[in-house]
């Protein structure tokens, strides 16, 4: 299927989405992310969307859902690197992705997740 890498670093996994995904591949990616969280017991998930040139309602839903699913498995998610055009389009679309952590870049995302994970004391 897709050649998207799922990278494990410490207690977190990082998924840099590199190319435009069609709906079917996007759903498969969601499944493999969740499987990886389960198998490595990840506490944090970073999805980097800095190369995504658009996020439409399907992709938006998929990202929010993935974060919710991960949370049920005790894993916090940060969405990183969303492009400004994408953000402006989402705002105009009325698509408010709330209840999901966002960071400017992967580095900030790792820092943010560390803080949240530490705060949970588990």
């Amino acid at each position: 299927m897709s050649d998207i890498a799922i990278i494990k670093i410490g207690n977190k996994i990082i998924v840099p989405i590199q190319n435009e995904l069609n709906d079917i591949i996007a759903e498969k990616l969601q499944a493999s992310i969740l499987k990886t969280i389960e198998s490595v017991g990840a506490k944090g998930l970073i999805i980097d969307v800095s190369t995504l040139s658009i996020i439409d309602s399907f992709m938006g839903r998929l990202l929010v859902d993935t974060a919710k699913m991960a949370q049920l498995m005790g894993c916090e998610t940060a969405l990183t690197g969303m492009r400004k055009e994408v953000v402006l389009t989402l705002v105009q679309l009325g698509l408010i992705i709330s209840d999901i952590n966002t960071s400017l870049n992967i580095e900030d995302g790792i820092e943010l997740l560390d803080r949240i994970i530490r705060g949970r004391n588990d």
Binding site: T80, G81, M82, K84, V87, L88, L90, V91, I96, I97, S98, T102, S103, L104, N105, D108, G109
Partner: peptide
Amino acid sequence: IKTATAARLMGT
């Protein structure tokens, strides 16, 4: 509020 939401999506 819209502005703050958009900035938040960027991570700011």
